[in-house]
């Protein structure tokens, strides 16, 4: 991680915790998530977890390991394979004074509970004229690159960004996943929290002290002056590698991670583009109607005079994620594709 970004994170945590020096420690993305849930379970007894295999096994990826032993089966509720019931259960329980954190094993499986998210979770507060609050989190994980094929690799965050009443978070680092998950659990609005199992074993710094990251605050992961690369989830890593390659071509790339897509911090992106005059948007989801299409449209509407080149997008090809490595690599965004688009918008 570039030192500027690290310092920035320290300053933010200092601002929030208000006392003394913040010491940092290095943990994996997975450990950071587990710490966030552990701390929130300890802090607030109305918080509880539910999901498939989250008990003795600690989740198929290990994100809840040890929590059943620590908090017992009432607060770490292992469910049947019933995504509709899991999301409905979280929805209903959130209405009557508890804070459920539901786990859906793969993003693809969220589709089984789609009515519960789209028509219940997303609409109950509005339909009831604010009588209801839904402090719930639906955790899931997205993405390809792992050879899991067409039904276990999707990135469909745009569905939910396109739906009312749901906040959407998509963190890319251990520090962000911890700070954002804690914020999500305390938020009175429903949150779809999209992790990426490709990142689970990546390491990064988290604060030893409590550090909450507000929603709607993008993070500049690398500063630059020639082109703005907006990237989400695992694509942030690729964008940072691409930025290194671009440096060799004497192109200084700024990498921005929005971190939450609803709410979306356009101000940080606009400020960056006002400086660089060029933008490339990278996400693993389909290019067609992906979140990049929204950001590009906003840039056209709000930064038309700043742009020196059309906004470029790098996204997944519009096919189900294929299994074979050669095909999967063809579908996924890559460092090469990002570099190519960044050069194109710089006319280099």
């Amino acid at each position: 991680m570039p030192s500027e970004a690290r310092n920035l994170r320290r300053i933010r945590c200092l601002n929030m915790s208000s006392e003394g020096n913040v010491t940092m420690k290095t943990v994996t993305y997975l450990e950071a998530m587990r710490e966030a849930m552990d701390e929130e379970l300890a802090r607030d007894e109305t918080v509880f977890l539910l999901g498939e295999d989250i008990g003795p096994q600690g989740g198929v990826f290990g994100s809840t390991r040890g929590l059943l032993e620590k908090y017992g089966p009432r607060r770490v509720r292992q469910t049947p394979i019933s995504e509709c019931a899991i999301i409905g259960a979280a929805c209903g329980a959130s209405l009557v004074g508890t804070r459920p954190v539901a786990e859906i094993m793969y993003f693809d499986f969220v589709a089984i509970g789609m009515d519960q998210i789209f028509s219940q979770v997303g609409k109950l507060r509005y339909m009831s004229n604010g009588q209801m609050t839904l402090p719930l989190v639906i955790r899931t994980q997205c993405g390809g690159g792992r050879g899991k094929g067409p039904q276990h690799s999707s990135s469909t965050e745009a569905w939910f960004v396109h739906s009312p009443g749901i906040k959407v978070a998509m963190p890319s680092t251990p520090g962000d996943v911890k700070g954002l998950l804690k914020t999500a659990i305390r938020d009175d609005a429903p949150v779809l929290f999209i992790e990426n199992s490709f990142l689970y074993n990546t390491k990064g710094e988290v604060s030893e002290e409590e550090c909450l990251i507000p929603f709607g605050q993008a993070d500049v992961k690398r500063e630059g002056t020639d082109v703005t690369i907006v990237a989400t989830s695992a694509m942030v890593q690729l964008a940072l590698v691409a930025a290194e390659s671009l440096k060799e071509l004497d192109i200084s790339a700024e990498v921005i991670d929005p971190r939450t897509l609803v709410p979306l911090d356009m101000d940080t992106i606009l400020r960056s583009v006002a400086k660089t005059n060029r933008a490339v948007i990278v996400h693993e989801a389909f290019t067609r109607c992906g979140v990049g299409a929204e950001i590009a449209a906003r840039l056209m509407e709000e930064a038309y005079d700043d742009l020196d080149a059309p906004v470029a997008r790098v996204g997944g090809l519009e096919v189900p994620m294929p299994f074979a490595q050669s095909l999967e690599e063809q579908v996924m965004p890559s460092v090469t594709k990002i570099v190519k688009q960044a050069r194109a918008v710089c006319y280099r």
Binding site: C84, G88, S94
Partner: peptide
């Protein structure tokens, strides 16, 4: 659509 929601309210009551 209300059946899972009601079930969740039951979870909340039990919780």
């Amino acid at each position: 659509g209300g059946i899972p929601v009601a079930t969740g309210i039951g979870v909340g009551i039990q919780q």
